[in-house]
């Protein structure tokens, strides 16, 4: 458009701008409406789907986890509230709250033995033993979801990754990088020696002993002087494959 001088030119330009804006608004509104419509269709489809596969969602952990994933993608959180459509439809909120309570119980009961750090696998195993009578199967994914809900309690429940494994922490201890590396190393055999830590992580002996001592103090490690070679071993109940070395009846 050629710029023309004078008031008429300015008025023309302003009018054109207004028209463009109106058009733009219109297009944007159309798009939003369309999106909204699509989303609401999707939601209602999702609800239909949930209704239809209610039993699968309840009973099949793999199905449940996929369902959660799908929900997350459209911004629906079936766990956000215990009230409302989702909870009523699926009873899914209750399921996770129940899991959460049982997880807290198990963590507290095993704390004297593992210092408040427990292998996720082990936790699931204990959880399953405890829920023997319940019909629904429980997957690790379910555990993780239940734990993420526990975070609102602010009691320091957290899942940390050490090496390949996931550990659930129920004490507010901060594990620093050194501790994590030792735990990772310990996953191989369930224990480490000072020598091994020095060699594998190329640490000074002071650093290794320091880190091991603080793990001992936290109750996360136990010493073992009984081996034939006379070298002190540090065992970590939280990573040991020896499953629940407390009778399940005490839990």
């Amino acid at each position: 458009m050629r710029r023309r001088p004078g008031i008429g030119g300015l008025q023309n330009a302003a009018a054109a701008r207004d028209q463009f804006r109106a058009l733009g608004d219109n297009v944007a509104k159309l798009r939003t409406d369309l999106m909204k419509e699509q989303l609401s269709t999707f939601r209602s489809q999702l609800e239909d789907f949930a209704r239809k596969h209610k039993n699968d969602i309840r009973k099949n952990p793999a199905f449940r986890s996929q369902f959660h994933e799908m929900c997350a993608k459209v911004g629906v959180d079936p766990l956000a509230s215990n009230k409302g459509f989702w909870a009523e439809l699926l009873g899914i909120g209750d399921f996770y709250y129940e899991l959460g309570v049982q997880i807290v119980d198990i963590c507290l009961a095993t704390r004297p033995l593992n210092g408040g750090l427990i292998n996720l696998e082990e936790l699931c195993k204990l959880l399953r033993q405890r829920r023997k009578t319940a019909r629904e199967a429980v997957s690790e994914d379910d555990c993780l979801r239940a734990i993420s809900k526990l975070k609102v309690l602010g009691s320091g429940f957290e899942v940390i990754s050490v090496g390949k494994r996931k550990l659930v922490r129920s004490v507010p201890t901060e594990l620093n990088k050194d501790h994590n590396e030792i735990l990772e190393l310990a996953q191989v055999q369930g224990f480490v020696t000072v020598e091994e830590v020095e060699r594998r992580l190329t640490w000074s002996s002071g650093r290794a002993i320091d880190a091991l001592d603080s793990l001992l103090d936290e109750g996360l490690a136990m010493i073992d002087d009984g081996h034939r070679d006379g070298k002190r071993r540090y065992w970590f109940p939280c990573v040991s494959s020896i499953s629940s070395f407390v009778g399940t009846d005490t839990l």
């Binding site: 004297p112 033995l113 210092g115 224990f191 001992l216 103090d217 109750g219 136990m222 010493i223 073992d224 002087d225 009984g226 081996h227 071993r233 065992w235 109940p237 040991s240 020896i242 499953s243 629940s244 070395f245 407390v246 009778g247």
Partner: peptide
């Protein structure tokens, strides 16, 4: 036998008070 019987560190007296208490209890 309880499971802790197969976990080697339970055969060494633990230096940390809390851990030791639990060990003694078992």
């Amino acid at each position: 036998l309880p499971q802790f019987f197969n976990y080697p560190p339970y055969f060494t007296l633990q230096p940390v008070r809390e851990t030791r208490d639990k060990q003694v209890q078992l």
